[in-house]
Design a binder for these strands. Sequence first.
DNA 1: CTGTTAGCGCATTCAC
DNA 2: GTGAATGCGCTAACAG
Lengths: 314, 314
Amino acid sequence: MTQKLTILDIAKLAGVGKSTVSRVLTNDPKVKPETRSKVEQVIRESGYVPSKSAQAMRGGSAKVVGIVLSRLDSPSENKAVRGILEVIYQAGYDAVIMESQFSAEKTNEHLAVLQKRNVDGVIVFGFTGCDLAPIEALGQKAVVIAIDTDQVSSVGYDNHGMISLAMNHLLQQGKRQISYVGVGSEDKTTGLMRLNAYLASCEAAGLVPCYRTGQLSHESAYQLTEQVVTPDTEAIVCASDTLAMGVAKRLQELGRTDIQVSGVGATDLLSFIFPNTFSIDPGYYQAGHASATLLIRQLAGEQAITHLTQRASL
Amino acid sequence: MTQKLTILDIAKLAGVGKSTVSRVLTNDPKVKPETRSKVEQVIRESGYVPSKSAQAMRGGSAKVVGIVLSRLDSPSENKAVRGILEVIYQAGYDAVIMESQFSAEKTNEHLAVLQKRNVDGVIVFGFTGCDLAPIEALGQKAVVIAIDTDQVSSVGYDNHGMISLAMNHLLQQGKRQISYVGVGSEDKTTGLMRLNAYLASCEAAGLVPCYRTGQLSHESAYQLTEQVVTPDTEAIVCASDTLAMGVAKRLQELGRTDIQVSGVGATDLLSFIFPNTFSIDPGYYQAGHASATLLIRQLAGEQAITHLTQRASL
DNA sequence: CTGTTAGCGCATTCAC
DNA sequence: GTGAATGCGCTAACAG
């Protein structure tokens, strides 16, 4: 329990001045290699740990980024968060994570707390109804995921591309009777954009659309399934894996395992349980990775506000 | 954005000394009510926010707890984390979350970082092979989940109870031919303890055990299924929902939907997809809640090291 | 290159 | 009760 060691103790122990120790800590090039290694050795042997709190207060940077996600147990955000963590750890940052639960109010509270904590930057997972103003006020210090803004850097998912990808894949297999199950267009991204992508694909391919939208749940999709199934139906594209799960389940009951089902989310469980299915990977992990990289660069002043769109893949 | 306001600015603005402002901030009773409200008003109007960094450095407490979990995308830990967050937010703490990925080394690194950050306390999700020493060194400042220690408070899952619960439920329905699919006993908890619980239940009920263990994956369970199925088999108890999913899937293919399957984890997907199944809830959320409550109390010095076992439920 | 000197923003002694 | 002084652990000018 080598505690309470201060930079001064190390200085004495190494027979140098406190600032020299500080220089070693901050990787200041203006230190004679011998002195440096000497100090480093003492640090190592004494188990000295510089106090982040003090550093934060002095330098203004706490080496912390805040992450505001909507639901901790959302598989998609989960994957993205892992991507974020990977990047920021490597950059020497830590993360404080908060859950907005799709509440604009909670999001704002969290942002306030994060600022009070002197976090260097923030990554926010957007959602329909999210209040962008407080985020935009952060400027360079923020990156949002899954939602559009001009004021602040963003990493978006290619909602249109995901569905097009699924549609094209099916069309290439010669399917012509392709239905769609999605969620209501109150939800701009998962709902509206993906539905529009479906409609656009139908139009481009000269297909007659057949679709229903409901809630983002297995049950909802399960119940909607029959309404989009005809004797000729060859495939059903779904706005998400959750929906695909419900649809596939119903199809199984209906004995229509001939109908291929596609989802979005790259859930391995889907194709494990239902053979005649596939899932589009929106690139959650990569999106997290990209957003963190963006943020780190911005914090270093190396990069201005940027907008990326994560490519989806099969 | 009223920035860079220090305690001194407030002091001037309120026409008092900085220490008085500090006293107001720390809720020191020795302040004349008038002065207090005067200061509070100035604080409110100026939008002053005391610097957490400075407070942390001075007082030693940063109002932060570290959470070291093994996998961010583990549904179980996810639920527990939500329970933790709920409690600590309410207590005015924030959380910095880190992933150990079942690596003792990474865990230790993370713990070091957390200490350097001056976190008030730590909650660690244990795993087989986890190095307890650094955690135990934290004493009152740590709580571990899902693993045993004497040195430090812990919240464990009732691995035995989960399986007993499932077994009793099945026995009450008159099932006598109950097989088991689990994971290898290298894993002390999910592996060994749950298997032992199965064996104990069998012995108590006078049943002949029939079981196999493998990896903690759908595929593994899927492949093992046939080895524990006989024409007489009435039910299969699984060590986890993941396994149950694989087993149920295989049973469906084998046309043995008469066999009831049970898992552990309270995954709603399981019973949605496979009707003849049920899942035991180990109480992840409650465990998180309990561990956080424990930690907060310990940090306040109100409570000594305690060991809890989370009850499982159907 | 390295030691010395100042504070950073706040909480906590002390005197008044 | 309240203000002035002191120092937390560290970094950033300044000197040498």
